[in-house]
Simulated assay, not measured.
Amino acid sequence: MTLSSAPGPIGVFDSGFGGLTILRELVQTLPEYDYLYLGDNARAPYGTRSFETVYRFTLECVQYLFDQGCQLVVLACNTASAKALRTIQQYDLPAIDPDRRVLGVIRPSAEAIGRVSLSNRIGVLATSGTVKSESYLLEIAKLYPQIQVFQEACPMWVPLVENGEYNSPGADYFVKRHVDALMRQCADIDTVILGCTHYPLLAEKIRQYLPSHVTLLSQGQLVADSLADYLERHPGMDSRLTRQGSLTFLTTDSTDLFNQPASRFFGRPVSAQFVTLS
């Protein structure tokens, strides 16, 4: 199948809802572009799956967005960025269409660290899958070899957010537990990255338990600023993106199950369309 070279929307992909916190900042920063969001909710969560499975699922979703006319796709998912992005960029894109691009969320987050941390000691709060992938350690080491990275896996945080319990008293226990565990690794940590797109909904509680001098970075604005810079530096790609300010939401699961939680993540009402990938 030959893909069209006609301009199209920016594709934004996540295994479920978390990528909507990225999309929210993309729309805020670059409102003139068209966006097509795909949540693979039927197969979520990705965090506990193997590298091979995450790669296969992510490639299917990227291909689907390409088929819908997207020339540029953002993997708004830490797990997909950690386990699939590099392989897709290096091995699949040259065969599919060397002029298209797939970008992730980990590198923009890593790039920001060097501009923020003074102590060169940073923390990452993330899912077990992202922590095990060591993607943040690797990316930060490439850019800033002098920075030490301390990671803490927070397996209960995504279920709390997805079940709407992120403001509940029960959430405090799990947030404090993992924030304290991270800070026990190194008292000199001065910057913490929220390495999961669900975690911005817990940011207020996380700040309560972090020492006041620690800077907390959410990925949405970092990714949005990085994309704006990327498009400025790549006018050829920028010219292949449509600009009518439209937003389209797609899910591989029931729209009834998607719309209400999605609206919480996105910050305004969401009405999705159901799609099948095959």
Rank of each mutant, 00 (worst) to 15 (best):
G47W: 01
S226V: 00
P108S: 10
D14T: 01
D229E: 11
F265T: 00
D40R: 12
L216K: 07
F66V: 01
M156E: 06
A44C: 10
S128Q: 12
D190I: 02
Y64N: 15
C186F: 06
Q244V: 01
M237S: 08
A187C: 13
P261I: 02
L227Y: 06
F274A: 04
S119H: 12
S128A: 10
G220I: 05
S218Q: 14
H234S: 09
L72V: 14
R243V: 09
A203M: 07
E162H: 10
S133Y: 09
Y91G: 08
L85V: 03
R177K: 09
S119P: 06
T127H: 11
A181V: 07
R24I: 00
C154W: 06
V175S: 09
L38S: 00
L103M: 07
P45S: 14
T276S: 15
E139V: 00
M156Y: 03
Y55K: 15
Y173L: 12
P31M: 11
P155Q: 10
K142I: 12
Q208N: 12
R24H: 12
Y209I: 04
Q63N: 14
V54H: 10
R24L: 01
E165I: 04
R107N: 05
F258M: 11
D40T: 00
S81C: 04
I193R: 00
Y37T: 01
Q90S: 07
V223M: 07
D225C: 11
P9W: 08
I140M: 12
E111C: 06
I206P: 06
Q244R: 15
S119E: 09
S5Y: 08
T255D: 11
A262G: 08
T242E: 01
G245N: 10
G123C: 10
V161Y: 13
N41P: 04
G16I: 00
Q148C: 04
